[in-house]
Design a binder for these strands. Structure first.
Lengths: 150, 150
DNA sequence: TTACAATAATTGTACTTACAAATGTATGGT
DNA sequence: ACCATACATTTGTAAGTACAATTATTGTAA
């Protein structure tokens, strides 16, 4: 169904406006799908996202600005997001020895094992969310999205 | 720049996962762009979205469930969102005469004139946000997004 | 008609997010 | 050493959102 029918829009939209709306609407649906999947694990999409970044550090600590740069949805409030992870013993925070303004955040074994528990199923969930697109179409879509941000 | 570089992802992503991330990330950027544009008008994207829906009714009143169906980002809390519009005299709310459980929301002249003030510039802003895509690419993108939701 | 379920909206509460101001630390110039 | 400035994070506050529970109204079936 095209986006105008989906949101029952009555007026005629220009192509860029239609696309902006379509992108926001479709992304919202995917986000909901991911959030719903993560819920039983007690994680929000942002918390999951940060855990993934921490794991990607392969042992090296990350500070807050690094996390922020790499997050899908930049947050003004990464401090409190990390607090939540620490409270659940999924991450750990230290003050950086060489620059005490900075903070060093690492994923805990607990966090790693939660992620590895999720990994496989998350893959399947993502594939399911995009099951209507063929491999070639996924690539096309990625290219178009990359181009938007150029 | 591709999405993996953009968020400095170190691990290899499957194509569906890459696409889910890319979509959420790119949509986020557009949303920020729209939000920033609307800020001087004192509207959030959701408030603007609801105002557009109300205008689309062409005088006919909308009730809350109608608004929710048509909103880009479904909200659990449309009541309070409409409250904000009413407080700014951009919308008006009445109890439906034939079914007093329902509510009838209409856009005010004030709301209409605010929208018409925004219209032209919003078009330009959307075009700017997607300036990297040619007309044909916009269509391609729309088709792919429609297909995801099928 | 009365009781029960369904519908439509609102409210309470906890949680998140946005934004600005504040804190603490480091750096560069004099 | 001293000062101003920049940096990195944290905190306060207001606004926004999610979810469940509640209120009010309507429909319906015994």
């Amino acid at each position: 169904m095209n986006i105008e029918k989906e949101i029952q829009n009555s007026s005629i939209l220009s192509e860029p406006t239609r696309t902006v709306i379509n992108l926001m609407y479709t992304a919202r649906q995917l986000e909901d799908g991911v959030a719903m999947f993560l819920k039983p694990y007690g994680l929000t999409t942002q918390q999951y996202n940060v855990l993934r970044i921490l794991r990607g550090q392969k042992g090296a600590p990350a500070n807050l600005s690094t996390l922020n740069e790499r997050m899908i949805a930049k947050s003004s409030n990464t401090t409190r997001l990390v607090d939540k992870l620490i409270k659940k013993d999924l991450a750990h925070r230290d003050v950086c020895e060489t620059n005490r303004r900075k903070v060093e955040i690492v994923i805990t074994p607990n966090g790693l094992s939660l992620l590895s528990e999720i990994d496989e199923e998350m893959e399947q969930n993502n594939a399911k969310l995009l099951k209507n697109l063929a491999a070639e179409e996924l690539q096309q879509l990625n290219n178009l999205l990359d181009k938007i941000r150029e």
